[in-house]
Amino acid sequence: MDGNTQVTPDIEAPPARQLTQALRNPRVRLGLMLGGALLIVLLLARFMADRAAYVSTSDARIAADMIAVSTDISGRITDQRVSAGDAVKAGDVLYTIDDREAVYTLAEYEAEANRLRAEIARGEASIGLASSKAGSEVAARRAGTQSASASVEAARSNLETAQRDFERTKGLFDRGLLPQSNLDQSRNTLDTARQALLRAEAERQSAMADQRTASIEGEEVQLIELDLGVLRAALEQAEARVDAQRVVLEQHTIRAPIDGVIDELFYDVGEHSLHGFRVALMHDPDAVWVSANIKETDIRKVAPGAPVRVKADSDPGAKITGTVTRIHDATMGEAALMPNPNANGVFTKITQRITVRIDLDDAGQTPGLRLRPGTMVSVRIRKQAREDTA
């Protein structure tokens, strides 16, 4: 070093020097080690206490009833009213399908129904006229028959009187008390009375025949009523076709079945939808629950009604609580669509899991919290004694 160089001694900050000196003290180091060990013991004790009081798993997710909206008819999509993620109300229109053919068919069925209604109205009017005419005709013919019957009775009475007069005149003539002219006149009167009775009886027969004819004409009303019965039956069939076609026309408008959120749409405008195929997928965000998969070694410690704390991965700070409402009787492997039979002969024992349903509490939840189906959560289920069912 030359004479111009100045050596500056290392100056250690007082706090750092004090910490260094403290760490060099055996008692301080012993205290720190004891404190660390105590902290580890406390954490371990808390972990063991938590493990003794709760069944925990992170193999859990938000679940919901996913509603698949399908169409009852096939056709070309002409309009799309919603997009994925939209909130909808029950009855809101999702899609419309080309309905021109259905509209034309409905108009044809309605025209046929209107024609039958007109035929029925005309038949009912004909019944009214025929009934009035037949009633008047029958009444007139009945009056004629009664008049003819009265004439017959009068003619018979006159004949009986003429017969008695003739017999009395003939008796007087036979005793020579009356001339031949009186006898001839009495005989003529008797013959005239007989002819009058025959005419009266003939007129009565004619009146009775006319009355029967009028009664037969009155049966035309019954024939019209039979025709009306056929027309009314045809009208019922036509109205049923109209109602059925209105249902078909309504099926061209696909509506939301529930209040909820659209999760997925499977068709675009211009595409051809197929009968029975789903066109949209949706769920009710207010009706979600937690589906947790619990180890078979812990399932005996879980019982319906047990309180649950839920921690959502999407919002770890949210306060979520719930209750165990259902415990499945089969493991997830048995409920799978394609169970693994382990046909290769190599067996590896794996702890199975059983699905538990946890319904979330409405009260006490974090305001504005939105839990989406499929998102992961962790659950802590309070252990409870559960009665085994036979």
Rank of each mutant, 00 (worst) to 15 (best):
L235V: 07
I258D: 04
I40Y: 10
L223T: 14
A150P: 01
P367R: 13
P367C: 11
P373C: 12
E124Q: 14
H328I: 02
G128H: 05
R194G: 13
G36C: 11
R382L: 08
S151M: 08
V28N: 12
D243M: 11
V242W: 03
A244W: 04
G123S: 07
I97R: 01
A335W: 12
S206Q: 14
A125G: 05
I358Q: 03
Q237C: 06
A292M: 06
G3M: 10
E124D: 14
T389L: 09
T375K: 05
R380S: 09
A240E: 11
I120Y: 05
D174E: 14
E119N: 12
L42S: 06
Q21G: 08
E112L: 08
D65R: 13
V88Q: 02
A60S: 10
V346C: 04
T375G: 01
D50K: 14
R168W: 09
T5C: 05
L190G: 01
Y109R: 11
R326W: 10
M338F: 12
K319D: 06
R187V: 07
G35F: 13
K295F: 11
D286H: 14
R246P: 02
A64Q: 00
A287I: 00
Q237Y: 07
I258Y: 01
E137W: 00
G91N: 04
I354S: 03
V41T: 15
A240L: 10
L38A: 15
A193G: 02
L183N: 01
N182Y: 06
A118P: 04
A52V: 07
V308F: 03
V247W: 03
E160L: 10
A240K: 10
G270I: 06
P14Y: 07
Q245R: 09
S151R: 10
Q180G: 08
D361Y: 04
P373S: 14
Y54F: 15
V248K: 00
A111Q: 13
I77V: 14
R51C: 07
A209Y: 10
G144K: 09
R382G: 01
L129H: 05
V138N: 01
M1V: 05
D174G: 02
L183I: 02
L42D: 05
A162E: 02
E12M: 01
V356Y: 03
I354P: 00
N4L: 09
R232H: 09
S147F: 14
H328M: 10
T169Q: 08
A280L: 01
Q365A: 13
